Measured scan of single mutants.
Amino acid sequence: MFYPNSPQTSPQLTQIPYGQQYAMMQRQIQQPYHPFATTEPQARLYPYHYQGPIQQEQGGFITQQSTAASPQYVQMRVTPVDQSIMSGYPNQTANGSSSSSFNYNIHPQQQQQQQQQQQQLRHHAMPVGSVPLQDDRYRKQLIVNYLAPDVTSTDLHELFSRFGELDGARIIYDKQTNMSKGYGFVYFCHAEDAKEAVERMSGYEFHGKWLKVGYSTNPLNIVPSNSSPYVHAGSRGAAG
């Protein structure tokens, strides 16, 4: 039997160049792979992502010199942007860049009308829970959420009447099932009393439920100042 490094198959040491006398086997001759043993700084910083320098080929596509990437890492192929796409944008300079302001050559009167329309939209648009300043009635009506099913309009009136005089209180019921929808409205005579009720009743436990109280901004629920107070009856038909 002959071994790869046996004296019968191995040459004389004098015939082997210096430095390879003890590297006779194939696994010894093959050098191990060192990912950080390279002179390129990109490979030292990113050993798993770097795959060699990027070269520009004919046709405008950018390719990489090395083989496919590892399945664990996804390499994105980048193509140059066609400058003709950006030619339609206004205020574009000769080098292809555009300024931040756009001039669509709008007539001054049209621009003024658009600004007025935007101001009107901001004036009428009102986020949930906010209180408008032009109508004091919005500051007097509250919406009470997360009410228990057994709470009546009379219970709601008695709960909030300790903060001040009320114009009314009612629970909203479903017309088909005649069941409470879980929320109601309270109408105060003074805005200061309503503000105190919002601050003190939010998070209050009532009939096993934690109440959420806020201003009601729905104009359909506003009680006119010259109208008669609501009837605080315990029956659902009268309260709904």
Rank of each mutant, 00 (worst) to 15 (best):
T79V: 03
Y18C: 13
F185D: 00
S225G: 05
Q21D: 08
V144I: 14
Q65I: 02
S225T: 13
A169Q: 10
L159D: 00
L45M: 12
E57M: 15
F102C: 11
G208P: 00
P41L: 09
H190C: 06
G182Y: 00
Q42K: 14
Q72K: 15
T93Q: 11
M76G: 15
E40V: 07
T63R: 14
Y3E: 11
I106S: 06
T177Q: 06
G237N: 09
L147K: 01
P127A: 06
G60V: 05
E199T: 13
G59Q: 08
Y204I: 15
C189W: 13
Q65D: 05
Y50Q: 13
S101H: 08
K175Y: 03
Q8I: 08
I106W: 10
I172Y: 00
L211S: 01
Y230I: 06
P229T: 08
A43K: 15
P71N: 07
Q15S: 09
E199Y: 15
S101V: 03
L159K: 00
M201P: 00
Q134T: 09
T67A: 09
G60W: 02
Q26C: 07
L211Y: 00
Q58Y: 11
N91V: 08
A94H: 08
S228Y: 13
V78F: 06
T217Y: 02
M76N: 14
V151E: 00
Q15C: 04
Y3I: 08
Q21W: 04
Q42F: 06
L121V: 09
Y230V: 04
N178H: 13
L121N: 09
N105S: 06
F160Y: 00
Q51G: 11
T154P: 15
I106R: 13
V81H: 10
L121C: 06
V151Y: 00
K212F: 01
Q64D: 08
Q112G: 10
P7R: 14
Q120W: 14
T38A: 12
Q116M: 05
F188K: 00
P11C: 04
S99L: 07
Q75D: 11
G182M: 03
G88E: 06
P80F: 04
Y3D: 06
D174H: 05
Q119G: 11
S202Q: 11
A69C: 14
S84T: 10
V213I: 06
A238L: 10
Q118P: 07
T217S: 06
N95W: 12
F36W: 06
R200F: 14
L147H: 02
A125F: 13
K140C: 04
E158P: 00
Q8T: 09
G168R: 02
Q28S: 06
D167Q: 06
Q83W: 03
H107N: 13
S66C: 05
G168Q: 01
S101E: 07
P17R: 10
R77V: 01
D150G: 14
S6K: 15
F185I: 01
Q120R: 10
D135Y: 13
Y33T: 15
M201N: 01
K195Q: 12
I172G: 01
I143N: 00
V198Q: 09
A23Q: 14
S98F: 12
P17K: 14
M76F: 10
R200N: 04
L133M: 11
F61D: 12
Y3H: 13
S216K: 01
R44H: 11
Q114V: 05
Q12P: 11
Q134C: 11
S97K: 13
P4T: 10
Q31I: 05
Q64H: 10
H157D: 07
R236N: 05
P224H: 12
E192P: 06
S202I: 15
Q72L: 03
G59A: 06
H124Q: 09
A148I: 01
F160N: 00
E57G: 12
F61T: 13
I143R: 01
T79F: 03
Y18V: 07
V186C: 11
H124W: 12
Q92H: 10
Y89F: 06
D174T: 03
P132S: 08
R137A: 04
A43C: 07
T152R: 10
A37C: 08
Q110V: 06
M86H: 11
A23D: 09
R137T: 03
Y18K: 15
Q120V: 10
D135F: 05
T217H: 02
Y215N: 01
Q112R: 12
Q26F: 05
I62F: 06
I143Q: 00
L147R: 01
S99F: 05
A69Q: 07
V231D: 05
L220C: 06
M201Q: 02
Q55Y: 04
V151L: 04
N103D: 05
F188N: 02
P47D: 11
Y104M: 05
G52S: 09
F2M: 15
V131C: 07
Q42G: 13
G214L: 02
T177V: 06
Q117M: 10
Q117A: 10
P71K: 14
G59T: 09
G182S: 06
V213R: 01
H49Q: 08
P80V: 03
Y187P: 00
G59V: 05
Y204R: 14
I16H: 14
D150L: 11
A23M: 06
Q92E: 04
H34C: 05
Y215H: 03
G203N: 02
N105C: 05
Q72Y: 07
F36L: 07
Y104S: 04
I106C: 11
F61M: 14
G129P: 09
L45K: 15
A94S: 11
Q117N: 09
D136P: 10
K212W: 01
F188Q: 02
F2L: 14
R122A: 05
P224I: 05
E196A: 14
A233G: 08
G96W: 10
M76P: 13
A191Q: 07
Q51K: 14
A191F: 08
N5R: 14
F206M: 08
Q115W: 08
Y46I: 04
F185V: 01
V198M: 09
Y187M: 01
Y187L: 00
P90G: 12
T154V: 05
L159W: 01
N178A: 12
G182K: 02
P108N: 13
D174Y: 14
Q115M: 09
P108D: 06
F160C: 02
N105H: 08
A94C: 13
Y204K: 13
G168Y: 01
H34T: 08
Q117V: 06
V223M: 05
I143M: 03
Y183V: 00
G59C: 08
S153R: 15
N226Q: 11
P219H: 01
E40I: 10
S66F: 06
P149Q: 07
G214F: 02
H190T: 13
V81L: 07
D167T: 02
S66R: 14
P127G: 11
S161Q: 12
A238Y: 15
G168P: 00
S202E: 07
H232F: 13
Y73R: 15
L142D: 00
H190V: 07
A238Q: 05
P229E: 05
W210H: 03
P108I: 09
R27A: 03
F163Q: 01
S227F: 14
